[in-house]
Design a protein around this nucleic acid. Structure first.
Lengths: 191, 191
DNA sequence: GAAGGTTGTCAACAGCTGATGACAAGTCCA
DNA sequence: TGGACTTGTCATCAGCTGTTGACAACCTTC
């Protein structure tokens, strides 16, 4: 993996490489289980460089979180088909170059106190507040937090069971029910 | 915390102490962030003893998971009020001596590959299968997995935001909506 | 009271982690 | 050409991890 020829001198590109690789690894393995040396090796760089560019591992993690598309995709498109769109998105594997990694990063970093402090701080302003505002209507905060919980829960269920152990038919029904559930949280304002 | 007088010689009690303390710590901090020395210190014992009694840290974790009440409490009592009962249980802090720690342990250990392998193996047989059977009816597996996802998601949301940032009124409405959602997954068999 | 097994402690290990400061190599400008 | 700055590497640090084997203290049994 590490090329024999020396790495081209390009601080900006190297920095971007590190950030992208760190995002990928944090999403795949979580904060605690990825070392700076792992990331450095994959980028083809010495670990000391990461420390110099990003300060500490915590700082790197913070910048990775800030570089994510924190669910802005949740708030695009037709409101009438929102539930199904989100449900299908959660149920299918995201493309590896996607910036939509905040969910897996959060899932896999729940155990790390340092990471959680950063996640809690950034997820509220960058994810919950916008979602609440976008949903709108009566009790928007309650409905939005519940909807977010459902999405996170399904994602977590997939993690635990290793991608839901359901055949295609059942998976389709799961998705449908999941979608209807989200949609009703968006539409039904009365409790 | 560590008493000055030597620990009474009682292998069975010591073993139980270790198991209980390990469960508490794994639930609070997750697999990766708890060291054998942490657990040992809290029990008032040397870390080497844990290795001798339980083999490896992985083995200890497995036995901790097996000692948990893996959600059998989900399947008790009146079916008509099941949703609300579960919702309230999830929304309130569990007692510290509770054996219902499998959910927080899972949450906080999602990032650890070794722990996840154990969790995935044991949660299916000890949690999902019984729940599916208990729910019964058409598409029980789909409904049960979705219900479990919702429960896990709400628990996770509480973790991330540090106990939902809602006032008591909103929290009550959240719980009600949460409860209705679970109940409909139990009752409404048609998709 | 001596032998033998049980229960627990202690010291040490190899391996890993994040971080630091010294150093080499490339690039740019005067 | 020569100094100054940037970009990247290397060696090393202290601290932590799970695990192991030797050892001490205690209890039981003969």
């Amino acid at each position: 993996m590490r090329p024999c020829y020396p790495r081209p001198r390009n601080a900006e590109a190297t920095r971007a490489d590190i950030l992208l690789t760190a995002r990928k690894r944090f999403a795949r393995d979580g904060y605690d289980e990825v070392g700076l040396r792992d990331i450095a090796r994959e980028v083809g760089v010495d670990a000391a460089l990461i420390s110099r560019y990003f300060g500490s591992k915590e700082d790197l993690f913070l910048q990775v979180m800030q570089s994510c598309d924190n669910g802005e995709g949740f708030m695009l498109g037709d409101r009438a088909t929102w539930g199904r769109r989100i449900a299908e998105q959660v149920m299918t594997k995201p493309k590896p170059e996607s910036k939509m990694d905040s969910l897996p990063i959060m899932l896999r970093s729940l155990g790390s106190a340092k990471a959680m402090e950063i996640i809690g701080r950034s997820s509220d302003e960058r994810f919950f507040r916008p979602l609440i505002e976008w949903m709108g209507g009566k009790d928007a905060e309650v409905r939005a937090r519940l909807a977010a919980s459902v999405v996170m829960g399904v994602a977590m269920g997939k993690e635990i069971t290793g991608g839901l152990p359901l055949d295609d038919d059942a998976k389709a029904r799961f998705t449908t029910r999941f979608a209807r559930l989200l949609q009703s949280l968006l539409d039904d304002e009365d409790c």
